[in-house]
């Protein structure tokens, strides 16, 4: 099993790796979405004075949304590292860009944000790009 783990020359990543990659995308999109949503409720943070910035950060960290967002991004970082150990960086890095599309979709579906034509074009390009990358072997090194 470990041999198969290292020398995975198949056209598709293993189920475990695919799930881990999907998890990194969801954690990144979800974490950024929660941070963005939480910070919008905290309000605009002025760059000065320093004490006001520290108070605003303290207030932000006190919010459950922000804490869950930070936890999600921490888990995203760990999962990304594990993904990098399993498949090519040139496969995993662009594939994770699906998160941009997911955030745009979450904004549209959950927050009722307007999605412009340009944004749909961007989402289309990312999906087409990721589909092309998905047609290449996930691991090309021993």
């Amino acid at each position: 099993m470990l041999q198969a783990y290292v020398m995975n020359d198949s056209k598709k990543p293993s189920l475990g790796t695919a799930l881990l990659l999907a998890l990194t995308i969801v954690l990144s999109a979800g974490g950024n979405f929660l941070l963005s949503s939480g910070m919008k409720q905290v309000g605009s943070v002025e760059a000065s004075p320093l004490l006001a910035v520290v108070r605003a950060i303290g207030h932000a960290i006190g919010r459950a949304e922000i804490r869950v967002g930070i936890l999600a991004l921490l888990l995203w970082f760990i999962c990304s590292l594990v993904v990098f150990s399993r498949i090519d960086f040139s496969y995993a890095q662009p594939a994770s860009a699906v998160g941009y599309a997911l955030v745009a979709f979450l904004g549209y579906a959950v927050l009722g944000e307007a999605v412009t034509a340009a944004r749909w074009v961007g989402i289309g390009c990312i999906c087409a790009g990721v589909t092309l990358i998905g047609r290449t072997p996930p691991r090309t090194t021993a």
């Binding site: 040139s90 496969y91 662009p94 860009a97 941009y100 599309a101 745009a104 340009a118 944004r119 074009v121 961007g122 989402i123 289309g124 390009c125 990312i126 999906c127 087409a128 790009g129 990721v130 589909t131 092309l132 990358i133 998905g134 047609r135 290449t136």
Partner: peptide, 18 residues
Amino acid sequence: DRTRWAGVLLVCVGVAVI
């Protein structure tokens, strides 16, 4: 390979547009 490069460039354009 060329397929992966094409995919990377499409992703790059898509992210920039978004």
